[in-house]
């Protein structure tokens, strides 16, 4: 475990940069993590982030890419445009959640 300075606050993250406590997350933190991956958050990004956080709150685990495409109607292609460096990990990391467990 390590602590990372995000949006001015010390935030606990794991070795891969996923927040350990989703309650520490703020939209400002999301923007900063996204910027670190070269992403400027758009309305579509927020739609994905909201969905990920809602799913995590409901089911106790973040959704997979397939879960996101099915749940939001955002296509697989769009997901890769929104998160070019890997939608499987980036959406969850930006949303302040853990690394998704699914394979699809």
């Amino acid at each position: 475990m390590s602590t990372m300075l995000l949006a001015g606050s010390p935030i606990e993250v794991d070795a891969e940069g996923f927040l350990l406590n989703p309650d520490q997350w703020t939209p400002e933190i999301a923007a900063e993590i996204a910027a670190g991956s070269g992403i400027t958050l758009s309305e579509k990004h927020w739609q994905v982030i909201d969905f990920c956080r809602r799913t995590n709150a409901d089911k106790g685990a973040p959704p997979t890419v397939r879960g996101i495409t099915k749940g939001t109607g955002i296509s697989t292609k769009e997901m890769y445009q929104l998160f070019p460096k890997g939608p499987g990990i980036l959406a969850s990391r930006i949303a302040g959640l853990s690394k998704p467990k699914g394979c699809i």
Partner: peptide, 18 residues
């Protein structure tokens, strides 16, 4: 053990991943 790192520490890891 706790260590502190800046946000931009993440970028090189990702550069490696890509």
């Amino acid at each position: 053990m706790n260590t502190t790192m800046e946000a931009d520490v993440l970028s090189p890891v990702e550069a490696n991943e890509t």
